[in-house]
Amino acid sequence: MVSIGRYIRNIQRSGIRKWMRDMMYIGDAKYGKCVGQDQFGNKYYENLDPADEVPGRHRWVDYAQHEYNATQVPAEWHAWVHHIRNRPPPEDTVMQNLSPPWKGPWVENLTGTRGAYKPYNTTAAKINPWEPKTIPRGSA
């Protein structure tokens, strides 16, 4: 349950402009410390004051794009947002040293878009569609 006092306090701290953006994107007036930003421009926030945030909802993402989904959050930031890691990736030495050298750059999941992966099929089809054979008129 959100209290009116918390709501007004967060509007005063963040300002009207950020409040309007937060209401459009996340549906809540939140205020916290920015702990980092990923390579895509997403910003990650945390508010540890128990009077301001409900426990378990004190970490959140401010997406850089208007059309966003959860696959736009890299794995290391996902672990921090979901409380798998205590420290954010810029401060966590374990996460910084964990990335193997053969790992490619992270890309979002493109399923359902034009950029989705479509495999090339080399096998013959089991069912072939019927193609009528046409004969020109008057030649029979």
Rank of each mutant, 00 (worst) to 15 (best):
N42K: 03
Y44I: 06
Q37T: 13
G41V: 08
Q12Y: 14
N10K: 06
A51V: 11
T71Y: 13
D62G: 01
I16L: 15
G41M: 11
K43S: 05
D38I: 03
I11N: 04
N69K: 08
A51F: 13
D28E: 08
R57K: 00
I11E: 10
L48N: 04
H66I: 02
N10Y: 06
D22W: 08
M23L: 15
H58W: 02
D28Q: 06
R57I: 00
Y63W: 04
N47K: 02
A70K: 07
D22I: 02
N10R: 10
A70D: 05
R13W: 15
R21M: 02
C34N: 02
I16M: 13
D52T: 03
A51D: 10
Y31A: 13
D28L: 06
I26P: 04
K33R: 10
Q12C: 14
Y45F: 07
R59T: 01
R13H: 14
Q39E: 07
I26R: 11
N47C: 05
K43H: 06
H66S: 06
Y68L: 07
V35N: 06
R59V: 01
S14Y: 12
M24T: 15
H66C: 01
G15R: 12
D49A: 11
E67T: 02
Q39H: 15
D22M: 08
E46Q: 03
G56A: 00
Y31H: 04
G41Y: 13
R17F: 13
Y44P: 02
G15L: 14
R13T: 13
G56S: 00
A29Y: 05
Q65G: 07
R13I: 15
E46C: 03
A29W: 09
V61W: 04
P50H: 15
G32Q: 05
Y68C: 09
W19G: 04
S14C: 11
Y31S: 10
G56L: 00
D38P: 04
Q39Y: 13
R17E: 12
Y63G: 06
N42R: 04
N69F: 11
V54I: 09
G56W: 00
G32P: 03
W60H: 03
S14R: 14
G32W: 03
K30Y: 00
D28A: 08
L48D: 02
C34H: 00
K33Y: 07
D49K: 06
Y31L: 08
S14L: 12
M23E: 14
W19S: 09
P50A: 04
D38M: 06
V54Y: 01
Q65V: 09
S14G: 11
C34F: 04
Y68E: 09
Q12F: 15
T71S: 15
V61D: 03
K30C: 01
H58L: 02
M20C: 15
N47Y: 02
P50C: 07
W60R: 07
D49F: 13
K43T: 03
M20Y: 12
V61C: 03
V35Q: 10
Y31V: 10
G36I: 08
G15M: 11
E53R: 04
G27R: 14
H58K: 04
G27H: 12
